[in-house]
């Protein structure tokens, strides 16, 4: 079982991100049912209200939708939407941090590009 949410950021944000990752990686399929907030709460040992807050974050973004009395489902095109959203923050989240570290280590631009090419092979 994964560690409970404890990377310091608000837990509901981490719950939302966890669901996003599951959708991006394909373990949650579009139109498929998402575990209930109570299941999330029990699994991660967090307050059900917190789990609900994370789920609602994604409902507001149109990633999940609620079927009354049945549960929560992944929306159509959710994966596409998430890819677009994550692409926007990719530079800040990953590239900027990499460039910063590379600068500290005096790694040349050409070496960096080489590393990326090697890594993609």
């Amino acid at each position: 079982m994964r560690e409970p949410m404890n990377d310091g950021r608000p837990i509901f944000v981490q719950i939302a991100e966890h669901i996003e990752n599951e959708i991006l990686e394909g373990s949650l399929e579009e139109l498929g049912q998402v575990p209930s907030t109570n299941q999330f709460a029990t699994f991660y040992k967090i307050n059900p209200a917190t789990a609900a807050k994370g789920v609602n974050l994604l409902v507001n973004e149109g990633i999940l939708y609620k079927k009354r009395g049945i549960g929560m489902f992944v929306a159509e095109h959710a994966r596409e939407k998430l890819i677009e959203k994550r692409k926007k923050t990719f530079f800040n989240d990953y590239v900027a941090a990499m460039l910063h570290e590379a600068e500290k280590l005096q790694i040349e631009k050409e070496t960096l590009i080489q590393m990326i090419e090697d890594g993609q092979k």
Binding site: T37, N38, T42, N47
Partner: peptide, 13 residues
């Protein structure tokens, strides 16, 4: 204890 507490609270708030 924490696990049972959350589980039971979720089912019987």
């Amino acid at each position: 204890f924490y696990e049972e507490l959350i589980k039971d609270y979720a089912e019987h708030p």
